[in-house]
Design a binder for these strands. Structure first.
Length: 830
RNA sequence: GGGCGAGUGGCGGAAUGGCAGACGCGCACGGUUCAGGUCCGUGUGUCCGAAAGGACGUGGGGGUUCAACUCCCCCCUCGCCCACCA
């Protein structure tokens, strides 16, 4: 239902009528476009191909302002390349597995599919009205068995290659959503989705071995530089967190305990040794007499929430384990402590502590009265006195054979000595952990594995895929700490594909990020039945030429999709090494300075805005409000201004369309058109869409003046047509209306959306005269109209002859004259 | 605590070493209109001035340059990311 607050009724068809009702225009052209089928990929046979992709939506309710912004920008990009003659793939689908559907299903006593597919229909209808240039024939939903069959197939290939595996470890557990979370889904100790404090649980879970690809994920970013936002690349780089250093094996009693360090040069400065309190290693090393103290401490640590534990303000705590570790370089015996400032999951879960050169170790040493030994002289004050560890470059001291070496030399030397003695070697460590992919929830892709008492983990054979979700609804889906699928005995019971005996299905489902790690490949051949995608189709379209989406996926989705692409490349299924050649992160739409939110009422509804102002005005307002990557505060935006502008365009088109046919041209108009086309082309291509719209406005004004002044009709017509074509990417309905008013028979197939982008005549871009700015001492004092080819000497002479220049100079002498013909002269007084 | 980015009229923004404020919103005045809205025109950084004209002006301070919103250094403020990763 649309609201009309300001518009009056207008006749639906109004080719020569200068009134403009955005809703009538929408109603008029939408059905015509459906019939003309303008956006099907492959319809421009033989043309170069370009894949323009928007991050696919999650179907939670109807589209909102954020979708309008993101898809509006993506649509300008897609339509631009279509206008430029490319065969463009611009698909749409839905990321339709996930928790909100499941929670809605529990509340309503339904199957999650009911809510999911109803929302998809709502969003699809809104996308149509919003006039996004999708190829609807390729639509997909990740929750369709036809899709998740191939998600399972891919999982099995990962399994075969040893890239999917199961292990038991302490995992992040969300007590509200009752499921495990990937490292990436824990933000500040809280569940990314629901905000609950995350706890740890020891569980056996499925993982993808993404750490195997850490180096390539890092190194291949070189080819994305300049085409992805710098900050996204930086975030990925930091997330992967490659550290180069050394593994050093210490001896504790009769066992070897390796540690990782980036500073093997400081080995002589190690004065104690720390093991993560929650690591199995601490338990194993603990001396009998220290056991009660250790166990009490460990209990304290376990009670801490992740948030408390991560606080850097907290004083250092720990407990001695009653054993010593032998430094392999010095033979020195170092006391071993258990402490919670050492992480069990990073490195080996143990460290050598060098308090003089590491702040955390120094804090601990001062709390426990441990010695501080400086081994790198950086020229700074003694850390033992100041409490500030030094980590800069310097010369080694108190370090036996390393003395006198600089930091870098000492690192190399220490590694060489360790290697020689067999007590260590150079190693690389990553902050990145393997991707925990199993979830204890229902509405996701089932993991296609059978657990057999005699054969163990057995993959479901390809020809039995998909492993379908059973029909479960409402209270059946209530989270109970294990997957709802586990409570469905009939579904769980199966026979072993290997031995035929009784066996059970794996009851976990996959993280929805698995679904979205390959959807862009499925779009290339959405109906392909012999594999996840047709290799030939993928070869034609991949990589994605332009990916558009929010920066909230800077780490998770983009890293996972890059990982999948590399694995598929290694499997020989894909030429591409990187999935997304270029990335554009659009900003958010906010209101009065903060994020829109239903719960606080700080909300603008897209449907209402579209009802009040029309689709084109909302789209244009979004794009004109600022650079695409900046946030937009809707409170600062004037859709009314856009409505006015669009109606000016429509009126101009009607006026130009009504001019009697003529060959008469006006150079001034031709020049204005050429300039606008030239700049708008560059601006659109470089995604400076707000500035491109400003050029359209200038062109519109120039043409209006031309019409009112009786300029040449041929020039005005060419200009109005160029304007309509360029505007078709930004305001598709109004552009088509203008095109029709200019006399084109759209119904017969002559649509502006099937018309080539205009080209500026270079001859018209060369000006007859140029305005030369004349400065005195850097301040503008005069302007001269000069021929563009004017010589330096002539220009200098003319500038010095200027009255304004003489007045500004007064009785001062001229020191120098800087001449940049033909644009500028700067007369510098003494 | 560390890293990255940003700061320009009343507002959104434009200008990437060479005319600061394009384009638009808002506002003011005038025209059109029975009226309101629409529409059309003019003006609109600040200060002095009737005007002509002038001075100042891109968070603050310094520097490089004939010339700095733009490049360099320091500081302030805001935003984002990471946060005991050895």
């Amino acid at each position: 239902m649309r609201e009309r607050t300001t518009m009056t009724e207008a006749p639906a068809a109004a080719a020569a009528d200068d009134r403009y009702d955005p809703h009538a225009v929408q109603d008029r052209w939408l059905p015509v476009w459906d019939r003309l089928d303008l956006f099907r990929a492959g319809r421009r046979e033989g043309a170069p191909k370009k894949y323009v992709l928007d991050m696919f939506p999650y179907p939670s309710g109807d589209l909102h302002m954020g979708h309008a912004e993101a898809f509006g920008i993506g649509d300008v990009v897609a339509r631009y390349w279509m206008r430029r003659g490319f065969d463009v793939l611009h698909p749409i689908g839905w990321d339709s597995f996930g928790l909100p559907a499941e929670n809605a299903a529990i509340k309503r006593g339904e199957h999650p599919a009911t809510w999911t597919y109803a929302n998809i229909e709502t969003q699809a209808e809104s996308f149509r009205r919003y006039a996004v240039s999708f190829d609807w024939s390729r639509r997909l939903h990740t929750s369709d068995p036809e899709y998740y069959r191939w998600t399972q197939w891919l999982f099995l290939r990962f399994l075969e290659r040893g890239l999917a595996y199961r292990k038991s470890s302490a995992v992040n557990w969300c007590p509200v959503d009752q499921t495990v979370l990937a490292n990436e889904q824990v933000v500040g100790g809280r569940c990314e989705r629901c905000g609950a404090e995350v706890t740890k649980r020891e569980l056996t879970q499925w993982y993808f071995r993404i750490t195997d690809y850490a180096d390539r994920l890092l190194d291949d970013m070189a080819q994305l530089e300049g085409r992805w936002p710098d900050r996204v690349l930086l975030m990925q780089k930091n997330w992967i967190g490659r550290s180069t250093g050394a593994t050093v094996r210490f001896r504790v009693g009769d066992r070897e305990v390796p540690v990782f360090t980036t500073r093997p040069d400081t080995l002589y400065g190690a004065t104690f040794f720390v093991v993560a309190a929650d690591a199995a290693l601490a338990d194993e090393l603990c001396a009998p007499e220290q056991r009660p103290a250790f166990e009490e401490y460990r209990e304290q640590v376990r009670k801490l929430s992740e948030i408390e534990r991560q606080s850097t303000e907290r004083p250092k705590t720990g407990v001695p384990l009653g054993v010593t570790a032998t430094n392999p370089l010095t033979g020195e015996e170092l006391p071993v402590y258990a402490a919670d400032y050492v992480l069990a999951e990073y490195g080996t879960g143990a460290i050598m502590a060098v308090p003089a050169h590491d702040q955390r170790d120094l804090d601990f040493a001062r709390a426990f009265g441990l010695p501080v030994r400086v081994v790198v002289d950086t020229g700074e004050a003694d850390p033992a006195e100041t409490g500030v560890a030094t980590s800069g470059d310097g010369v080694l001291v108190n370090s036996g054979p390393l003395d006198g070496l600089r930091k870098d030399e000492a690192i190399a030397r220490a590694v060489a000595v360790l290697a020689e003695r067999g007590t260590g070697e150079a190693t690389v460590n990553y902050r990145l952990r393997d991707w925990l992919l199993s979830r204890q929830r229902f509405w996701g892709c089932p993991i296609p594995v059978v657990h057999c008492p005699s054969c163990g983990e057995v993959p479901v054979p390809d020809d039995q895929l998909p492993v379908r979700l059973p029909d479960m609804r409402g209270a059946d889906l209530q989270p109970k700490g294990q997957s709802p699928l586990a409570s469905n005995a009939e579904w769980v019971r199966t026979s072993c594909p290997s031995c035929g005996g009784d066996a059970e299905r794996d009851t976990d489902t996959m993280d929805t990020f698995v679904d979205s790690s390959w959807y862009f490949l499925r779009y290339c051949s959405p109906d392909y039945e012999d594999g996840p995608f047709d290799p030939e189709a993928v070869r034609q379209w991949m990589p994605v030429a332009q990916y558009v989406g929010g920066v909230e996926h800077a780490i998770l989705h983009l890293l996972y999709a890059r990982f999948f692409t590399k694995v598929l490349h290694d499997m020989g299924m894909l030429d591409a090494v990187e999935p997304f050649a270029a990335l554009l992160n659009q900003g958010q739409v906010i209101l009065n300075g903060s994020a829109m939110s239903k719960s606080t009422g700080n909300l603008v509804e897209l449907g209402k805005e579209l009802g009040a102002y029309g689709v084109d005005a909302v789209r244009l307002s979004m794009v004109f409000a600022g650079p695409p990557e900046d946030d937009i505060d809707w409170a600062d935006v004037s859709p009314t201004g856009s409505v006015k502008y669009l109606s000016r365009v429509a009126r101009l088109a009607a006026d130009v369309g009504a001019l009697p046919p003529s060959d008469e041209r006006s150079e001034e108009v031709d020049r204005a058109v050429a300039r606008a086309v030239d700049e708008a082309t560059r601006l659109t291509e470089s995604h400076r869409l707000n500035v491109a719209v400003a050029r359209f406005m200038e062109l519109t004004s120039a043409l209006r003046k031309g019409v009112d002044a009786g300029a040449g009709a041929a020039s005005l017509r060419d200009g109005a047509e160029a304007l309509a074509v360029m505007l078709s990417c930004y305001a598709p309905y109004t552009a088509e209306e203008a095109w029709a008013r200019l006399g084109h028979d759209v119904e017969a197939g002559d649509s502006v959306h099937d018309t080539a982008w205009p080209v500026a005549d270079p001859a018209l871009l060369v000006e007859d005269t140029v305005t030369c700015v004349v400065q005195v001492g850097g301040k503008v004092r005069d302007r001269l109209e000069v021929p563009p080819g004017i010589g330096e000497d002539a220009l200098r002479e003319q500038a010095l002859a200027s009255d304004a220049v003489r007045r500004a100079l007064g009785d001062r002498e001229v020191r120098t004259v800087v001449v940049r013909a033909p644009k500028l002269v700067n007369v510098v007084p003494a």
